[in-house]
Amino acid sequence: MSELEKVLRETARRLLEENQVEVIIGFEQGTLPLRTTPCFIRDPDQVDRLVWNASCGNNLAQYLHHTTGKVGIVAKGCDARAIVSEIVERQVPRENVVIMGVPCQGVIDRRAIEALTDGREVLEAYIADGKLVLRGAASEETLDLQDVLDDGCAVCQHRDPPLYDILLGEPIGGIEGAAVRPTVEQVASWNADERWAYFSTEFSRCIRCYACRQACPACYCPECFVDQTQPSWFAKSDDLSDIMAFHIVRAFHTAGRCLDCGACARACPMHIDLRTLGKMVEKDVRELYDYEAGMDLESVPPLGTFRVDDPQAFIK
């Protein structure tokens, strides 16, 4: 147990014992190597289930949409920003959530491990001194932890939660240097046809399981546009144009709200690059409106308001 986990458990126990919250949403050990699983703890005697490590990749803020009463929640930078957005968008009352902020060193991308291990099954794994040791049936390999982190984490500017009630651990600041993922830079350099080809190939793998939507803290419509039947805006079959329409409209709906937390991409069973489209829209919003979602409770989301000096050069 790390020092941070110790503080996390003590804090969670205190919040529950003092009835400050009814439930703690955090992570516990999963059933597979390098997997944690979200947990909901109501009994102070159960707080030792809580863990914090580089495999805490889900964005827990998504659960606030379905949880009633006062909630204590473990929040890395991304989760805390999502909570800020939920409060700003009046989905979660500020007074109902106690944010246990955790500075985040980045989360593991299972796809990166899969690519590096080339089909060899990992039976046991542990992290020590910035290295990730993977044991298989007949192999042991050591990887640099940095090489298997989600590539968004490698350029993360918001590792510290911008809003918290209790901060667990010391702030670590953003990563210096490059602020754009290589994939985003590459896609941005392409012309429209090349981009269309790239996204068509990616989305052609989509099986419409909607894991991306369900994992996304910004996707909380009581009825998603794609589920509406009267009228039905999109066909529900496997036609690529309908699949593309779903992903593009989702990017529109989350424009100026997407945090680029990557929860969608990590949830996708078909390993689709779901982040890049959202990130490019996020970049546009940042450049046009000087706005970044989830940073503070006061700023109004640019697509939720109108200012006479709003840029409009893109309206053609």
């Binding site: 099986i207 419409r208 399981c209 909607y210 894991a211 369900q214 529900k236």
Partner: peptide, 21 residues
Amino acid sequence: KCLGCAACSYLCPTCHCFDIV
């Protein structure tokens, strides 16, 4: 903790529910 997605049922070899439109 279930997100309510269909990753499990769509990858499952035996899940067979369907909708006709």
